[in-house]
Structure formats: C-alpha cells, structure tokens
Design a protein around this nucleic acid. Sequence first.
DNA 1: TAGATTGTTAATCGATTAACAATC
DNA 2: TAGATTGTTAATCGATTAACAATC
Lengths: 215, 215
Amino acid sequence: MPKNSNISMSVIKRLPRYYRFLGELNRCGITRISSRELSIKMGLTASQIRQDFNCFGGFGQQGYGYNVTQLHIEIGNILGLNNGFKTILIGTGNLGRAIATHMSFEERGFNLIGIFDKNEATVGQLVRGLPIRHINGLDDFCREYHPTVAVLCIPSEHALEVEKQLVDLGIKGFWNFTHSDIASKYPDVVVENVHLSDSLMTLCYQVSSKFEERE
Amino acid sequence: MPKNSNISMSVIKRLPRYYRFLGELNRCGITRISSRELSIKMGLTASQIRQDFNCFGGFGQQGYGYNVTQLHIEIGNILGLNNGFKTILIGTGNLGRAIATHMSFEERGFNLIGIFDKNEATVGQLVRGLPIRHINGLDDFCREYHPTVAVLCIPSEHALEVEKQLVDLGIKGFWNFTHSDIASKYPDVVVENVHLSDSLMTLCYQVSSKFEERE
DNA sequence: TAGATTGTTAATCGATTAACAATC
DNA sequence: TAGATTGTTAATCGATTAACAATC
C-alpha cells in the first residue's frame, strides 16, 4: 500500500535501477541483502536506499535486511509493471522499428497492440508480429481498442498534429522521442521524454571538457 | 573562455535544451530575447536561466537581454559541437542501425567513422554509407584511426568484454545503450547512459499512479 | 536621463547524508 | 541476550528562486 503519491521524481527515477539490480541478485540466487551491501554494489549511500524504500513502506526487517525476491516484486508492483497498458506506436522509420522490435514492452508494463505510419508503402508489413496500419485508421482503431499509451517515433515536425489527435482520442501517457513539448500543452497527460540528441550533446560536453583538462 | 569546469550536472543537462530553443528562435528570425521571455517559452524561471548562462560568462547586456544568434553559437561552443570527435558504433541490431542511420552525429559534435558487428552475415553491408566491419578488425582499425568515442548498441551480456577492449584501445567516451555500468569500472572514461527500459518503466510508474488518483 | 534587464549575492527549498533509537 | 540493521529524525549539502545593485 503506497504511503502517498507525493514521491519526488528523484526517487522515481531510481526505482527502475533498483528493480534491475534486485532482479540480477535474484537470478544469482542471493536471497537477502542489507542496505549497506546494496549501496556498495550500486554506488549509492545506504541511507539513500533506506529512505527511498521507505517512501513506499517498510520492506525490510531490523537486524536482517531485505528479502531480495520480495523486494524485487514489491518494486515491480510500485512501478506498475503488471498493468499491461494498451499501447500504440506511431512512426516506423528506423527508430520506430528498432523500438517496436527491441523493447520488452510486456516486461515493462505495456502491451503493444498497434503500429501506425503515414507511408502507404509500409502498410501491411509485419513488425513484431503486428501489421503496420495507415495513420488514417488511427481514429477507428482507438475508438475500438482504447489504447492508453502512445509511443511517438515520428519527425518532430509532425508531432504537434498527431499528439493533439491522440490526446483527443483519450491517450493518457506518451513515450515521446520527438522534441515536441507535449507535457506543457496537455497538463493532464503523462509524458516521458527520450531526447537522444540531447543525450549525445551532453556526452559531447563531457568529452570536450575532459580534453580541456590538460590545460 | 569558460570560468571553470566545476559546472554541476544539473546545468549541463539543460544546455542542449537551451541550444535547441535558441536555434529555433534563430530560425524564426528573432534576434534578441530577455531571460524573462525565454523563461516563459521554456517553462523555467528567469533566475535559473541567468544563473545557468553566468556559469560560463556574461553573454547578456543589461537593459537589452541576450543576442539570440550569439548565445546560440556560444552554447554550441560550450557543448563542443564543433569537435567532430572520431566515433565508432558497435552492434548493428535494430537499435544500432537506427542510431547509426537516424542520429545527426555531425551536428552534435561527432564524426562516425566505423561500424562493427560480430555477425559475419552483416559484414560489408552499408549503413549510413559505411561498411559494417567484423568486430575482429576492431583492434587494427582503432590503432590506425584512433577513435575517441564509442557507441555501444550490443546486448548487455557482451558489454563487459567489449568495453574493456575499447578502453584499452584508448576510447575516452561512451554513449552506452547497454546496462553495463562502465563508469564505475573505468573512472577515467566519460559515459553517457541511455537506459531506454528504465525510461519506459518510469513512464509505467507515472501512468499507474495517474490511474490510482481516482481512489 | 529613465526604463529595462542583466549579473550576482542572499534566502529558500528540496534532496542527500548522518545519526541513532527501535527492534528483529 | 548481543549483534545487526532497519526506519526515521536531524543535519548538511546543493540547487533553485528571490532580490537588488550595477549598468546598458
């Protein structure tokens, strides 16, 4: 039972990493871990780990530590990975295809049910076992299947129009690979941005300043 | 002339976004902007914008604001986008291909000079005008061309081995799409992680907690 | 000059870390 | 019980925001 939903973004962003590490420990047959041990493995402080977990309730036991299997499941539940949110993906360029083929949507709480593109030539092709549909069929599809999440892999130029259409069709969450600032336009919708080119520029800064160190 | 390199990560992460907005303003023919106006467009505070820019020097003019073109160029320089760091990409699965084909490496400070894969069958195929090379040729290639940055698009299972090889060959920066924690193993190397599945789980949390709101 | 807006210092806010009593 | 480790409160640190003198 979550204490409350006023969890800070800093904590939320760490949850997937905890989930990964605990899954790994679990796979290795480690059944028990203290915040201290975990802190060393993850490069965090033990304090932070205990604070983070306690946002959601007391999963540990004094004098013992945490049960790895149980904690792994708990964090999965907190993340909501069993929800299987109905999801559509728009845009089947290289990136869209890669995401559609490559991501374990099911293990991450989503269920990919439709793939769309505006290019007639690609319509009908199978990607991850799903036929690419023409974008003109988006309205009918959404009215029939009521997806809740959309993955946007279209060029930023077309984002404005498509995002409006999707919000009107009841989409509640976006995994957004475009540069369009959806969140500020539709405050009731949840948006997770992936700005690959920003990430690349951040790397550029870091490499550049590393090289300047000789001075 | 950068004041000093003790710039916090929070500031660095905002630079690419400033760069994008200023480029956009520039393209629209806007030549001048105040921190106040920019703050409204970007959803930040004017204070933060002025603080951020002043980490690198006084780019503005009292009573006037900032020159858009000049500021855009300055931030590009700070990011080091003209460096054209020699870059190789490892792994030509869907994601690797998408990244290779899709990213504007040149505009972001990099110069992609080699693509590698361990699958014999793909060797020789052209991706972005570059032939896929077999991973066995990695050593020779690096000794001849001295790339400084590597993009890792391989399965996490193989990351350990490849990253060691690359560090030994003199790679100084990684754009890392695997889950391997390169940074903690090689503290002298710069790493920018892109954890797509973490991002997706974060979205899952946000959508889940949004739906719980009705309670 | 008067008005505007920066650069910069001081105040506030939030996140991380340290400390320790509670308890298994 | 004694030892270990949590849950939680208090202290510290860093980042954001507010305020304002400097100056174009």
